[in-house]
Amino acid sequence: MPRDEARIVEELRSTFNRADIPNWVSAAVGILLLPELIGQPTARRLADETSQAVELIFEQGMAATVQARLG
């Protein structure tokens, strides 16, 4: 069972910006990953792919997004 840290959940919730999902996701990756990973290709790829998924969820809904991702 996940145990989300309330401080982090609140930070992510309070900074969410539907009009700028890529920047919000990049900031979230920065909050959740080790600082030394920020700016690395893996962190950028994670942010890019997550942004695309979040945008699809808002556009098409969760079920369609999962179906599209899983093929």
Rank of each mutant, 00 (worst) to 15 (best):
W24D: 05
G39M: 01
A63D: 15
L37D: 09
I31K: 11
A47R: 01
F58A: 01
S51P: 05
E10Y: 09
I57N: 07
S14A: 08
A63L: 15
R13N: 13
Q40S: 14
R18A: 15
L33I: 10
L37G: 00
E55T: 14
V29Y: 02
T42W: 10
F58S: 02
I38K: 08
R44M: 10
E11S: 11
F58D: 00
E11A: 11
L46Q: 10
L32A: 12
E49A: 09
V54D: 01
A43K: 04
A64Q: 15
S51Y: 02
D48R: 06
V54H: 13
E36M: 13
S14W: 07
I57W: 12
N17D: 15
A43W: 09
L56W: 11
F58C: 03
E55I: 15
L46G: 04
F58M: 01
L46H: 06
L46V: 13
P41R: 07
W24A: 11
Q40C: 08
G30N: 08
N17R: 06
A28H: 02
V54K: 03
A64P: 09
E59N: 11
T15D: 02
E11G: 01
E49V: 14
S14D: 11
E11V: 13
T50I: 02
T42E: 11
T15C: 05
A27Y: 14
L33W: 14
Q60L: 13
L34A: 14
V54P: 00
I38P: 03
E55P: 12
V66A: 11
L56C: 09
P35E: 09
D48E: 13
M62I: 14
R13L: 10
V9D: 13
A19R: 08
R44W: 10
N23H: 12
F16M: 06
D48S: 07
S26K: 09
I31T: 09
Q40H: 14
G39Y: 02
V25T: 02
N17T: 02
Q40W: 07
R7E: 08
Q60A: 15
T50L: 09
D48G: 11
P35D: 12
D48V: 05
N23I: 05
L37F: 15
L12V: 14
A19L: 03
A63S: 15
W24T: 05
A63F: 15
M62W: 13
G61C: 04
L46Y: 05
A19V: 07
T42N: 10
T42Q: 13
R45C: 04
E49H: 14
T65N: 08
T42D: 04
E11F: 04
F58Y: 15
E49D: 07
L33P: 01
W24F: 07
N23R: 05
S26I: 03
R7H: 00
P22Y: 00
E49P: 03
M62F: 15
V25E: 00
E49I: 07
S14I: 06
E59G: 05
P22N: 10
R44P: 03
